[in-house]
Write a protein that binds this DNA or RNA. Structure first.
Length: 423
RNA sequence: CGGGGAUUGGCGCAGUUGGCUAGCGCGCCGCGUUUGGGACGCGGAGGUCGGAGGUUCGAGUCCUCUAUCCCCGACCA
């Protein structure tokens, strides 16, 4: 991508109406645009980040048998009334609206009911189960108070997977396997693996506990009690002697820390499926309940957390796995020799499959350096008379201060090596 | 939803006890000089002060209502 064709402009100053670091940086760098409190649009670079996170989540869900769907945003009131969740007294953060003819409709905030209703047409035998449909979709929740930029919006991108199992045992196996096999794999690929912990939290209507995935962060909304050696935590909301006892944790080994909930999984039992009439017939011709679970990952929240967590005083720092472009290539001077080398390196890297944001603008060097830092691509390549005199191009890592001059003919290989080292 | 703060060109801000054509920085347009860490000079464009109502000879400055944004709390992925 040529920077001259990318319509965004960076800003020196943070917007006055944001205090959250993630929102300030992402807006300054032109990744997102704020529409209103808790509602953000994704501009080209932000869209790529969101897509890259989504793709990682998608790959990991597919590996464990997930099947991607896309449910509707508009919700039919009738099926929500069956489970009682249309009632504002029970679910208080619905966005509700009306059709032209006056019919009430909801704007989707989760999707158990409609998904059960949809698959009911196809599930009737034990041979039809288990199934694990999921989607990556925008959720709408009418929060009383949006805050912290992308971390808590009224509209946010979320992956929600739902498991439909034939027995508690079958359910338990999937439920217990999904954390190590899929969730932690996602967080590892986002470079958050080391600071993300399985956390016991309140279970809602159908079970004693749910599991949350909490990433340590000073800006987190949750307080958890963490046993680092066991890599296990308890959310403050269920923290008690009894719970610690249940989980085999001792108060002495726990530290109180702030964390961001980047995922959660709930056992649902058969409450929703029974209510909506989703059953299957077993091998013996008996009607059986379908045991459900739901499994969320906040995709846009993760984007905000990554921005917040890895940034330094000069700007964003993206992990290689989600960076919009691997390389920020800046042509420093409007001189034929410099331009020619920049252009040729740009096309060489691009055709080798390395994504490059090529700063070909007629701007001063200082501005390009500042932008390279602010935008946060993992590697920076500079072409200038100075670099050419030194023997080629200047390569620098976003997170390190040292630079090295590399000959033009070995740039591609060196970048490939550097990137694989960073992954 | 309770408490606190804020709202003035695209962005960040100043604007005294109400007083004359509402300023500054960034950004933008033009010309010139510059070119390794967000350059400089000269010349421009752009706001009616969140909105409505009121007090006053006169309101960005005072009063009332209202909208929006941020923070703390409660609630929530």
């Amino acid at each position: 991508m040529r920077r001259s064709q990318l319509f965004i402009k960076t800003k020196k100053q943070a917007p006055a109406d944001e205090t959250a670091k993630n929102a300030q940086l992402l807006i300054r760098a032109g990744y997102i645009h704020k529409e209103m409190a808790g509602v953000y649009s994704y501009l080209p670079l932000g869209k790529i980040v969101i897509e890259k996170i989504s793709q990682i989540v998608r790959e990991e869900m597919n590996k464990i048998g997930g099947l991607e769907v896309l449910m509707s945003t508009l919700q039919n009131k009738e099926i929500w009334e069956i489970t009682g969740r249309w009632d504002d007294k029970k679910v208080d953060n619905w966005f509700k609206t009306k059709l032209a003819n006056g019919t009430d409709v909801g704007v989707g905030l989760t999707h158990e009911e409609p998904l059960i209703n949809a698959i009911k047409n196809f599930v009737s035998s034990y041979k039809d189960l288990p199934i694990y449909p999921y989607q990556i979709q925008t959720k709408f929740r009418n929060e009383l108070r949006a805050k912290s930029g992308l971390m808590r919006g009224r509209e946010f991108l979320m992956k929600d997977l739902y498991s439909f199992s034939r027995s508690q045992k079958e359910h338990d196996k999937f439920y217990n396997d999904i954390a190590p096999n899929a969730y932690f794999e996602v967080y590892r690929r986002l470079d958050l693996g080391d600071i993300t912990y399985k956390t016991f939290a309140s279970g809602g209507y159908f079970s004693k506990f749910s599991l949350e995935f909490q990433t340590l962060s000073e800006v987190g909304e949750d307080t958890i009690y963490l046993d680092k050696t066991k890599r296990l935590a308890v959310n403050k909301e269920v923290y008690s002697d009894e719970v610690l006892n249940d989980l085999g944790l001792s108060k002495d080994g726990l530290e109180e820390v702030k964390a961001v909930e980047v995922g959660n999984i709930f056992p649902l039992g058969s409450g929703y499926s029974d209510a909506l009439g989703l059953y299957f017939t077993d091998e013996h011709g008996q009607r059986q309940s379908v045991i459900m679970g739901c499994y969320g990952i906040g995709v846009s929240r993760l984007a905000g957390l990554l921005a917040e967590h890895f940034a330094d005083e000069r700007g964003l720092v993206w992990p290689v796995s989600v960076a919009p472009y691997a390389v920020y290539l800046a042509c420093l001077e409007d001189k034929p020799e410099v331009k020619k080398l920049s252009d040729s390196v740009y096309s060489e890297l691009t055709s080798a499959g390395i994504s490059v944001l090529y700063d070909d603008r007629d701007e001063r060097p200082g501005e390009k350096f500042a932008d390279a830092d602010l935008l946060g691509m993992p590697l920076r390549l500079i072409v200038s008379e100075k670099s050419i005199a030194g023997g080629g191009l200047e390569l620098k890592s976003r997170t390190k201060d040292d630079t090295q001059i590399v000959p033009a003919d070995s740039v591609k290989q060196l970048i490939v090596d550097r990137l694989s080292g960073l992954v």
